[in-house]
Design a protein around this nucleic acid. Structure first.
Length: 306
DNA sequence: AAGACGGGGCA
DNA sequence: TGCCCAGTCTT
């Protein structure tokens, strides 16, 4: 959950997730849909799918035996460089360096590296620096504790903006102690946003909606009202018919904007009439996409106000 | 090595 | 709106 997501945002999800899936067997036995539903709102849903797959590998192929080394951990789906190193060092005492966004920032400053935040050379430099520092640890000192200490330094004092250099425990060895720290690492080149226009068909009654699983590789497994690339109302009706959908397309009832990593989506919502009530679902029973959740808010406010 | 992931929160 | 986050996988 912590991959690319802030600790504060994760905590409530983590606690609920472990209540529902208290051990690896419960998680492995759950359906992907159940897992996604518990993940809904955290984003990057591929993480949930891979965690589920990893649980199945551990409970079935490995018969409940968790990996014990970084190399073994990295073989599980969703466990990459960072997570395998974190688990191996923190949980098993393996002397391997952990490099996350915090560590890269700390190293960029300690060594006064004028590199961009997303430069691979910075990641590599951080790797080398951490390995060197780990090599200096005394036998009784924990690699996991050291890794966490550097990450914690980045999270609390060596922050992206306005670092608290005056309180820094390693100020004397920092090459950016002259005030340069706040300007490192250099800003990453930003990418251009891609824009999409979609039309959603919204059928609702008594808090229930027409929902379907998203297709394609991106949002697969998440649910939302049916949608098409933006077209005219007539063409929308035609496409809906051709897709085998029931009901008739009514007037536009609203617009939703959704911005996610490098994508700007503008969605126009159309009322869909004449859908049998038996086809409608309770949104709380399926894993909704982020955009889907936004779309469902519009007709709710419509119903209340008449 | 670069791009996608069609995230989310906060300033 | 822009930036960052206890990154990983695919091409």
């Amino acid at each position: 959950m912590l991959q690319q997501t802030r600790v504060d945002a994760v905590v409530p999800y983590y606690e609920r997730f472990l209540r529902i899936f208290p051990d690896v067997y419960e998680l492995a036995a759950a359906s992907e849909e159940e897992v996604l539903q518990m993940w809904a709102g955290l984003g990057y849903y591929r993480r949930a799918k891979m965690l589920h797959q990893a649980a199945m590998v551990v409970s079935e192929r490995r018969q409940g035996a968790f990996p014990r080394t970084r190399k073994e951990w990295k073989e599980l789906p969703g466990i990459g460089e960072y997570t395998s190193a974190a688990i191996a060092s923190i949980a098993y005492g393996e002397a391997v360096g952990v490099v996350d966004g915090n560590v890269k920032r700390v190293v960029a400053r300690v060594k006064a590296l004028k590199l961009r935040a997303n430069d691979r050379a910075l990641h590599q430099a951080a790797d080398v620096w951490m390995e060197e520092r780990l090599g200096e640890l005394k036998p009784e000192e924990s690699p996991g504790d050291f890794n966490q200490a550097v990450m914690e330094l980045g999270a609390t004092l060596c922050t992206p903006k306005n670092p608290s250099c005056a309180e820094c425990p390693i100020l004397e060895t920092c090459a950016s102690s002259d005030g340069l720290a706040g300007d490192l690492p250099l800003p990453a080149k930003r990418k251009e946003m891609k824009k999409y226009h979609l039309s959603f068909l919204v059928a609702h009654s008594g808090g229930r909606f027409l929902l379907r699983p998203c297709e394609g590789n991106w949002n697969k497994g998440l649910w939302e009202p049916p949608s098409f690339p933006e077209t005219t109302e007539d063409e929308l009706q035609e496409k809906w018919k051709k897709a085998g959908g029931e009901g008739t397309v009514g007037s536009a009832i609203g617009e939703v904007r959704h911005t996610i990593t490098h994508h700007q989506i503008r969605a126009t919502l159309f009322q869909l009439k004449g859908v049998p009530k038996s086809a409608l679902r309770d949104p709380s029973e399926v894993p909704l996409s982020g955009l889907g959740r936004k779309v469902l808010k519009i007709p709710k406010s419509f119903t209340v106000t008449g």
